[in-house]
Design a binder for these strands. Structure first.
Lengths: 242, 242
DNA sequence: ATCATACGGTCATCCTACAACTTCGCAAGC
DNA sequence: GCTTGCGAAGTTGTAGGATGACCGTATGAT
């Protein structure tokens, strides 16, 4: 295979690189919605790859509803409103302000999740939540698995709402935050803060077990605020205005 | 080109059909997380398509974090928790119960969105919200564009929170609901209900303009409840337990 | 037993060719 | 003049084969 000169340098696979490049061009407004993309051949030439690679890249963007391809005509970029998928740019989360916004969203979702769960959870749900809590405060307290248990705890609560979309959205947001924190090497909190963390979880569980929606919501909100501040993010107290 | 016999019948493009088929197999648990998929060649034979088509399908699933391909080894399905994208199955929304859940999620997001917006919105934000409101109650009241204006209204509020993730999530959820309703031919509400709809929007706007977070949240929550019932979805009143 | 190497399997990329489809222009017919 | 039909050109969709890169394992020499 002859060596081709690519205008983009990275370690990622070629199709992903092309997709990211196109995605950034679209997000950045270089190509306005409704406009036609260059032909596949032109893109292949431009990026120094084969048409196959371009097609795989476009397949990804098409799956997100970012562009639409019409046979015999061309590929067109769609309005950002009608995307069929949500994807969060990991790079953007390096910005502290974005991280703050993500935590704010999480606070909203999780607070209401706890509220609903308190009203609806079954004893099976409570068992699952308790199991995660035990793993967190038990022998795995200082292990790496404790953050896994943390995730399990929150997802078990979300599942207890009986609403699969809430579960999906919360899982997604939590996972994004987890990976960002892991990436930022902030994965080793001080030990005394771990104790605080566990205590907060216990309070949430108690409220859920007591089927007290308001207390559960309150405890969860305080927990998310605390978790945020523990990684250096301060949430404005405006939300949940009451 | 010789005619190939495909085991899946539809009008969609081949890669999308293959991707959907694999996706369903994974979601349905036919292939457990961690397991390896058949090789690209095997899949190509199984579906009666070329390897290129299979690769495009896999490219889509890979972009969602649903499967991970390792060169020289194979493609593996990932745990559903660590998806890098949220995608909502349009088919599943035909189920009234799922629709109810989606509305519940929307209620949570939008109520808090209005609360935050009331506290943070600038005069520019208010202008944008007002513009959408005028389009809704104005000459386009009976037109098809009124639902577009409706969306604009809600997205303008979400934007006024200053939190891009809230804006993204709300846009996404609203768009899913809109398309589902449109698909279900429920797009022609009774005229007197339209009047109610406009009145609810006005109340929201007034609360925002008065910078009253609590009133804005309340008005929004009632509006979403009303909008849900207007399309035949009843939300349980448990949420926002107070 | 240990280590280096060869080998087969698999994904990654490239290439070419053709099919299906759309658009546009042009010419024949009304 | 206007419509209609048709064909050329361009674009995406699909097929199929070839080669490179990479991994895991078996083989064989030390």
């Amino acid at each position: 295979m002859k060596q081709r000169s690519s205008i983009i340098g990275s370690v990622e696979a070629l199709p992903h690189r092309v997709a990211s490049h196109l995605s950034r061009e679209i997000e950045g407004g270089d190509i306005i919605p409704g406009a036609r993309l260059p032909t596949e051949s032109q893109l292949a030439d431009k990026f120094g790859v084969s048409r196959n690679v371009v097609r795989e890249a476009i397949a990804q963007l098409r799956a997100d509803g970012m562009i639409e391809a019409r046979q015999g005509v061309g590929a067109f970029v769609m309005a950002p409103e009608q995307r069929t998928a949500i994807r969060i740019d990991r790079e953007a989360l390096k910005d502290q302000r974005n991280m703050e916004h993500l935590f704010e969203l999480r606070s909203i979702l999780e607070t209401e999740s706890a509220t609903l769960a308190a009203a609806r959870c079954t004893s099976d749900d409570l068992d699952a939540i308790k199991a995660a809590l035990d793993r967190m405060g038990g022998e795995e307290r200082w292990e790496d698995g404790s953050i896994e248990a943390d995730l399990l705890f929150h997802r078990a609560i979300a599942r207890a709402t009986g609403n699969s979309y809430i579960h999906t959205f919360i899982s997604f947001v939590c996972e994004q935050i987890r990976q960002s924190i892991h990436y930022a090497r902030l994965t080793n909190p001080l030990h005394d803060l771990v104790e605080v963390n566990v205590a907060e979880h216990v309070r949430i569980y108690d409220a859920l077990a007591a089927h007290d929606p308001q207390a559960a919501g309150e405890a969860m909100r305080r927990h998310i605020d605390g978790a945020a501040s523990r990684v250096g993010v301060e949430l404005t107290a405006i939300n949940r205005g009451k």
